[in-house]
Computed example of a mutant assay.
Amino acid sequence: MANKITYKTLQAKKNVEQIVCITAYDALFASIFDKHVDLILIGDSLNMSFNNESDTLTIGMDEMIYHSKAVCRGANRAYIVGDMPFGSYHSIEDALKNATRFYKETKVDAIKLEGGKEVAHIIKAIVDSGIAVVGHVGLKPQMARSEGGFHVQGRDEASIERVFNDALEVEKAGAIALVLEGTISSLAKDLQRELKIPLIGIGAGNVCDGQILVWSDAFGFFTNFKPKFVRRFLNGAELVEGALKKYVDSVKTKDFPGDEETYL
Rank of each mutant, 00 (worst) to 15 (best):
M1R: 15
M1A: 09
N3D: 14
I5V: 13
K8C: 06
T9E: 09
L10G: 06
Q11W: 15
V16Q: 15
Q18A: 13
C21Q: 07
I22W: 02
T23W: 03
A24V: 00
D26A: 11
F29R: 07
I32E: 13
F33M: 05
F33R: 02
D34Q: 01
V37G: 14
D38R: 08
I40A: 02
L41D: 06
I42S: 09
D44S: 08
D44Y: 12
S45H: 00
L46H: 15
L46F: 15
N52M: 07
E53R: 12
T56Q: 00
G60A: 03
D62S: 09
D62I: 06
M64F: 05
Y66D: 07
V71G: 09
G74Y: 11
R77D: 03
V81A: 12
P85Y: 06
S88C: 08
Y89K: 14
I92R: 05
I92E: 04
E93S: 12
T100G: 12
T100F: 08
F102C: 11
F102R: 09
T106F: 01
V108R: 10
D109Y: 12
A110M: 02
I111V: 02
K112I: 05
V119P: 15
A120E: 09
I122S: 13
I123L: 03
D128Y: 00
I131K: 03
V133W: 04
V133N: 12
M143Y: 04
S146V: 14
S146Q: 11
E147H: 01
E147G: 00
G149M: 08
A158H: 14
I160H: 04
N165T: 03
D166T: 04
D166S: 08
D166N: 11
L168G: 09
E169R: 05
E169K: 10
V170I: 10
V170Y: 11
V170F: 12
E171K: 02
A173W: 06
G174M: 00
I176H: 01
L180I: 08
L180G: 08
E181W: 15
G182T: 02
T183E: 03
T183P: 11
T183S: 09
I184H: 15
I184Q: 11
L187S: 08
L187H: 14
K189N: 12
K189I: 06
Q192N: 14
Q192S: 09
E194V: 07
L195A: 08
K196V: 01
I200R: 01
G203H: 03
G205V: 00
S216W: 03
F219A: 04
T223K: 11
P227I: 00
P227A: 00
K228Q: 13
R231S: 07
R232W: 01
R232L: 03
R232A: 04
L234H: 15
N235F: 09
L239D: 11
G242E: 05
K245C: 03
K245W: 05
K245Y: 07
S250P: 04
T253M: 07
K254C: 12
G258R: 06
E260L: 08
Y263T: 08
